[in-house]
């Protein structure tokens, strides 16, 4: 599903900053992957490369068998449709209701109105927010906002979900709720890549863990923990 071959990324600021160097990675369809590592290890750069917000300085990236580097500009939106994104700070539109926030993502893909009308409530029910459909984001708790964000990410049925610290601002119980929703989505076959600092979560879920440090992959373990057991 996601393949990276010798990917390097350097930012040419006043000083050359190497964010990623020589990354080789293969995430298969239906996997649930944690990406862990200290701040500045290159986790966010990795996610930005996957959604082609940036292009790598070196190497090749394939999403669903398509090269992101050889892609024409007008093809980019269609790759992004395969990917749902969840942020730490949920990034909801504050002047729109929960329904409108989720519908917005479908409208952006030019879905017909009646399709939007039937799909949005179904997705909101899945994340347990059916009764908040007409609330505004500021009327919701942090965990509820994050669930709206998940609904928005899955409403277009993406093949991959990238979650950048989805539980970063939440208490342990709420974090667990969010993670179980993501696990449920994963069980339906969606590939999930989660960037996280949440040690307990990673240790508890026992999924594939990719650890980054100074822009390199230092560990890639199936059913791993937050830290190396050795």
């Amino acid at each position: 599903m996601i393949q990276m071959f010798s990917v390097s990324m350097t930012y040419n600021a006043e000083v050359r900053v190497t964010a990623l160097s020589d990354i080789n990675l293969h995430i298969r369809r239906g996997e649930f992957v944690f990406i862990v590592g200290p701040s500045g290890a290159g986790k966010s750069t990795l996610t930005r490369l996957i959604i082609r917000e940036e292009l790598p300085t070196k190497g090749q990236i394939m999403i669903g068998g398509k090269s992101l580097l050889r892609m024409r500009a007008r093809e980019i939106p269609y790759v992004r449709r395969k990917i749902g994104f969840i942020f730490q700070d949920s990034r909801l539109l504050m002047d729109r209701t929960v329904y409108e926030n989720v519908a917005f993502a479908m409208e952006a893909l030019e879905m017909p109105r009646n399709h939007v009308k039937s799909r949005v409530p179904a997705v909101l029910e899945m994340v347990g927010l059916k009764d908040k459909i007409n609330s505004y984001p500021h009327q919701l708790s942090g965990g509820q906002q994050q669930r709206v964000c998940i609904a928005r990410a899955v409403v277009n049925d993406p093949l991959i979900i990238i979650a950048d610290e989805p539980t970063g601002n939440l208490d342990p119980d709420t974090s667990w709720e969010i993670m179980s929703i993501l696990s449920a989505i994963n069980k339906r076959g969606t590939t999930i890549v989660t960037v996280t600092h949440d040690r307990e979560m990673v240790d508890r879920l026992k999924r594939r863990v990719i650890a980054l440090e100074n822009g390199r992959i230092v560990r890639d373990e199936e059913r791993g923990g937050y830290q190396s057991e050795t």
């Binding site: 959604i51 007008r74 980019i76 939106p77 269609y78 790759v79 992004r80 449709r81 395969k82 990917i83 749902g84 994104f85 990034r91 539109l93 917005f104 993502a105 952006a108 893909l109 030019e110 928005r152 277009n156």
Partner: peptide, 16 residues
Amino acid sequence: RREVAIMKLVGATDWY
């Protein structure tokens, strides 16, 4: 700008 950023992220076409 927030809306535009989200639209781009979910894969809206430039013309949309």
